[in-house]
Write a protein that binds this DNA or RNA. Structure first.
Lengths: 155, 155
DNA sequence: TCGTGTGGTTGCATTTTGCAACCGTGGCAT
DNA sequence: ATGCCACGGTTGCAAAATGCAACCACACGA
């Protein structure tokens, strides 16, 4: 099992990265969520070595993001929920790696049937949230130290 | 310089991960975007080894996500734009690592002043997008092979 | 029954990471 | 001016993760 120095920070980002942040893991999730669920397909489309893929699939199953059914790995709810992470990475890559008009893939909102360029909206005021408009404050699960700490603006 | 086997997939997710997917990098970005911009602060709050931190900061500067000004590392636009990635990871962690009501941190939408639980909205119909409602199709920058490939549903 | 494809595992070389010790600069109290 | 400490790193070496190629077992069809 891999070394996970990220836990114990009482931080959801670190907690997520403890699992998803291992090399190849998010690319494996990309494949599975794209619908490619067989070992060989995932291996070919990502380029990951077979032993590593084997390891990653095992830990994803172990943590309940995937289920191993016959020769397929199918995502659970917990696995499907990593979709927004992939969307965020994709949007960053579209903008900053491939330029305008160079996007390798485009998202489609199945419910309305149109291309979607999803953006983050505030659950309170409903407005779009720009990256620099986000702050952060201690939540219900914050440690005493985090409560005290003057948490600073994000961005 | 690290080994980056992710490039050349013509995929924005892989392109983003080539840079952001290295161990510690997203945690470093978390710190910087939280407002902690000095070497020592970042080191203490993440727990990353000094040599690794040094390396990560260098490559982040090299790729234009950060600028090194005096003794501070300040995010550029490109750097601020990773915020949505952190938000997505945080939401996943809130939901699946720390349970309901256990969130270590809560987001605040600075513009309206209230807590925000940002959700993805469709740019076309304006509705909230559930993770399983996203499909994908080849974009303008898709390779011939990707054009041909029957791109499958996401989720 | 022989070959081929799929889904892995094993062993070993290479790369990345972690850790501790060290170094140079600047501030500041003596 | 001298000594001492903090800060921002760098260096060297050990440990862990990764990459690669060879191998194995099973299923299926010719």
């Amino acid at each position: 099992m891999p070394h996970r120095p990220f836990e114990g920070q009482n931080c959801s980002i670190a907690g997520a990265l403890a699992l998803l942040g291992e090399r190849w893991t998010l690319l494996v999730m990309r494949e599975v969520l794209l619908g490619r669920r067989r070992f060989g397909d995932i291996q070919r489309h990502t380029g990951v070595a077979k032993n590593i893929l084997s390891d990653r699939l095992d830990t994803l199953v172990e943590h309940g993001l995937l289920e191993h059914r016959g020769s397929e790995y199918v995502p659970t709810r917990k696995g499907v929920d990593v979709n927004p992470v992939l969307v965020a990475l994709m949007q960053w890559g579209d903008r900053h790696v491939y330029g305008e008009g160079g996007a390798p893939r485009v998202l489609v909102h199945q419910a309305c049937g149109h291309d979607a360029d999803p953006s983050l909206r505030c659950s309170h005021c409903g407005e779009e949230i720009a990256a620099r408009e986000l702050k952060v404050r201690p939540g219900p699960g914050a440690s005493p130290q985090q409560q005290r700490d003057p948490l600073l603006p994000a961005a």
